[in-house]
Design a protein around this nucleic acid. Structure first.
Length: 488
RNA sequence: GGUGGAUUCGUCUAACGGUUAGGACACAAGAUUCUCAAUCUUGCAAUAGGGGUUCGAUUCCCCUAUCCACUACCA
């Protein structure tokens, strides 16, 4: 076996890329790269029934977008190909037969689900384990369908030292005589995995902790073949939070759990990768925001946890928000634009300004429409908004300010940001006010919201002269109308 | 049921026998800002329970509880 660290990611083409899978891929990638090793992609498509058209492309797309570049794989080749299991079919048969010869596996003619004399505990009853040689030959010759099962030793224990979970040992007597080769001639995952990992000289098996229980069976296979066993790194699973507050394995009901769904919502691949790296691993420092290169240089198995983590959209949002803020403004301008849905509207020309206001205020691109909706249509709002203690604002004081603002702004020729700021600052001076108290009612009248991306000056600019004046007048009308009602 | 695993603030986590149990998200308060966001400051909040071992346990051992995984001719 070579000294180079070799890890693999071995997904099945069964649809979208689950976040849990991506995390496994990420850790396998980080481990390999942190050791200057190779990261291999292998497609495990031994189950014809579950194959989903196009999902291999989803895998390629996801890895590429996430920045997990594989060194060997079906699309780029390598010295250990083919990298798609269905293309290796004959190989598995050969190795299965080798095990039969060695007495570590046997033919089984029981039908699927045939459990007549089975023990109550479930699992296979080993009905065919000791069939006479002649009977086996005869039934094979007659063309009877069969599978090949692993002959698990009845006694002894199997143990290994997991790099994350430590020493684990299991009584062989609790293990099942699992199927290695299915009646359709395809290997089971359990078998193909072992054979391929050996042939591809994988040095470190990195996968989810759901495989912890079956690992002894894999170890027994390595032993039966006389192969050197790889090191094992099992990863804790990722849970999701249910509506009722309980926790269960991350699934669709927890929201978007596929990488592409998150990307479609406008989470940045770098943000997603950053966040999921923190699920089940922690760095030695207290750093939380990472680039891929930083993850590679700081990753180490000692930081991998045993206990499961809950996927938290809130923290993902925080991490992603920082990634968005850190983006090159030009990139943000380009990538966030489609999400804003302002093409062909009056705002399109003002997108650079709008984008600069939004970049530090959103958690994901899809937050944008909601944040700018008020620019298209003034929401109905309560007059209470004009009351603001700190700015000493009341509906009455607001009316006066709005009138002055209208007068000033109507006369303004140059509707640029600089000009608007100058005009409003001057007006504030005339009124003996600071800018804040002056702009509060203006902003309310313009937006109908307590919180907006950008201040009154920004909104005036974005809205344009005509619409701005309209909204300011509307504000005055609202206040006076309300006061009339009060007087009745 | 059997087997394996896990258990520190609500959440992500630090601590590898000795700390006032630290950081982050969220939440709250304050500073700042033309509002909000960003930023800074502060606050709130945890070792599942019970036994041991030890001068001393979050940390080591045992029991209990709870949760999870596996127990397919799925991967």
């Amino acid at each position: 076996m070579s000294d180079t660290v070799r890890t693999r990611f071995a997904p099945s083409p069964t649809g979208y890329m689950h976040i849990g899978n991506l995390r496994t891929a990420l850790f396998a990638y980080l481990f390999a790269k942190s050791k200057n090793g190779k990261f291999i992609l292998r497609i495990e498509d031994t189950d014809q029934g579950r194959y989903v058209e196009g999902s291999v492309d989803v895998i390629y797309d996801t890895l590429r977008t996430a920045g997990l570049v594989h060194d060997e794989g079906p699309d780029i080749g390598g010295d250990y190909g083919p990298y798609t299991q269905s293309e290796r079919k004959d190989l598995y048969r050969k190795y299965a037969l080798e095990l039969v010869e060695k007495g570590a596996a046997y033919y089984c003619f029981c039908q699927k689900g045939d459990k007549e004399s089975e023990s109550l505990e479930g699992g296979y009853d080993r009905h065919c384990r000791n069939l006479p040689q002649e009977e086996v030959q005869a039934r094979l010759a007659s063309g009877e369908p069969y599978v090949i099962r692993q002959r698990i030793p009845l006694e002894g224990t199997t143990s290994w030292n997991d790099l994350v979970y430590g020493e684990i040992s299991v009584e062989n007597s609790t293990l099942d005589d699992q199927v290695l080769l299915k009646s359709d001639g395809m290997p089971t995952y359990n078998f193909a995995n072992v054979v391929d990992d050996h042939l591809m000289e994988i040095t470190h098996i990195i996968r989810g902790s759901e495989y912890l229980s079956s690992n002894p069976k894999y170890l027994l296979l390595y032993q039966a073949f006389g192969w050197e066993t790889p090191r094992y790194i099992h990863l804790p699973i990722i849970n999701g939070r249910n509506a009722d507050g309980s926790v269960s394995k991350l699934s669709k009901r927890h929201g978007a759990v596929s990488f592409q769904a998150l990307v479609e919502q406008g989470y940045l691949p770098s943000g997603i990768v950053n966040y999921i790296a923190l699920l089940g691993w922690s760095p030695k420092s207290e750093q939380e925001i990472f680039t891929m290169d930083e993850l590679i240089s700081q990753f180490s198995v000692e930081g991998v946890h045993k206990s499961p983590a809950v996927f938290d959209y809130q923290k993902l949002g925080w991490v992603n928000g920082l990634h968005i803020t850190a983006q090159d403004p030009a990139v943000f301008l380009r990538d966030a634009f489609p999400y804003a849905r302002i093409e062909g509207t009056f705002l399109e020309a003002k997108w650079p300004k709008l984008a600069s206001l939004l970049q530090s205020r959103i958690t994901k691109y899809s937050d944008i429409p909601e944040k700018i909706a008020f620019l298209f249509q003034l929401p109905e709002y309560s007059l209470d908004l004009y009351t603001h203690k700190k700015n000493k604002s009341t509906p009455e004081s607001s009316t006066a300010i709005l009138h002055k603002a209208i007068t000033t702004l109507s006369a303004l020729e140059d509707w640029s940001e600089e000009s608007l700021l100058a005009a409003m600052t001057a007006l504030a001076g005339e009124c003996g006010l600071k800018l804040g108290p002056l702009t509060w009612p203006v902003r309310i009248a313009l937006s109908g919201l307590t919180a907006t991306p950008g201040g009154a000056i920004d909104i005036l600019y974005l809205l344009g002269k005509e619409e701005s004046l309209k909204r300011l007048s509307h504000g005055i009308q609202l206040i006076s109308k309300e006061n009339l009602v009060d007087e009745k």
